[in-house]
Simulated scan of single mutants.
Amino acid sequence: MQRSVRWVAAVLVTAAAFAVPTWLCGAVVLPPALKDPAIRWGVAAALGAALAALAAAWGHSFASRTGGESSQPVPAGGPVQATGERAVAIHGNSTGGISTGDTGASRTPADLPARQEPAPPAAVPAPPSAPGSVTASGERSIAISGNPGGNISTGDHPGGGQA
């Protein structure tokens, strides 16, 4: 569904959410209880406005969502491989945050273990690339074919530590 059609639908639903309850309350439900038309229609309009506000909130989310459509088409074909430690390979569009680092509670230097020199990383041979392929072969590497649409982090987050 096109965005303009969704906006028109959202506006129509919002208008109906105001008009229908306002008329029902003002003309049908409230006359036996409230004889003064100014008070009766004021209460009916307030109820209609409250329901229209809820409908407008829904309408905005409905009309502004992407609904599976993307600004970039998803590339076709190709292998997807993630061979490294904490590696991520995604074919297509990702709409969330991606992190390959450590997260956790904030730690003070006294809480951290003594730092040892890490062993040299083992060489990870990169697989042969094919057209349209997505490969993440290094440690904490990320490969995305398309628009990630979110935050990407390959290291430690602030407040976290790596043991």
Rank of each mutant, 00 (worst) to 15 (best):
A27P: 02
G68Y: 08
P21A: 11
A130C: 07
T22V: 07
A44K: 04
S137P: 12
A76C: 02
P148W: 02
G161C: 10
P113W: 10
P121R: 12
V8K: 14
V43E: 06
A143L: 00
A114Q: 10
A119P: 04
A105M: 13
G149C: 12
T95M: 11
P158L: 08
V29P: 03
P32C: 14
S141K: 13
D156E: 13
L54T: 02
A52G: 14
W7M: 09
D156L: 09
G48D: 00
A27K: 12
A45I: 01
P131A: 09
P125L: 02
S137H: 15
H60R: 13
A87D: 03
V124I: 13
L34T: 07
P131V: 09
P31S: 15
T100D: 00
T100L: 01
E139M: 13
S99C: 05
L30F: 11
P37A: 05
S145W: 01
T22D: 01
A50W: 12
G146Q: 00
S129L: 13
A122C: 03
L24E: 10
G160C: 15
R6I: 14
V5C: 05
N151C: 05
V8I: 15
Q116R: 14
G101H: 02
P113T: 04
G68C: 07
A50K: 04
A136E: 02
V88S: 00
W58T: 08
P31I: 15
V88I: 15
A16K: 12
G104A: 15
T22A: 11
S64I: 03
A27G: 05
R40S: 02
S99G: 12
R115Y: 09
A76S: 11
A63G: 14
E117W: 12
S129N: 10
A19D: 14
L47T: 10
L47R: 01
G92H: 01
G132V: 06
A89S: 07
L24H: 04
V74T: 11
A10R: 11
S94D: 10
A122G: 09
G48W: 00
A53M: 04
N151M: 06
E69F: 08
P128H: 05
A63H: 05
A114L: 13
V134D: 02
A119S: 10
S153N: 06
S137Q: 06
G150I: 02
H91D: 14
G155P: 02
K35G: 11
R40H: 07
G48P: 02
D102Q: 13
F18Y: 14
R107K: 06
A63L: 04
V11S: 09
T154H: 14
W58A: 15
A46P: 06
P125V: 09
S71V: 14
T66L: 15
I142N: 00
S94W: 06
A49R: 00
S129R: 11
R3I: 14
R107G: 03
C25E: 08
G101F: 05
E69G: 07
D111S: 07
P31V: 13
A10P: 12
T108A: 13
I90V: 13
A105T: 06
V74G: 04
V80P: 02
L24G: 12
T83V: 05
V11E: 03
A56V: 02
G48C: 03
R107N: 09
A76M: 04
P75V: 14
S94F: 08
A126V: 09
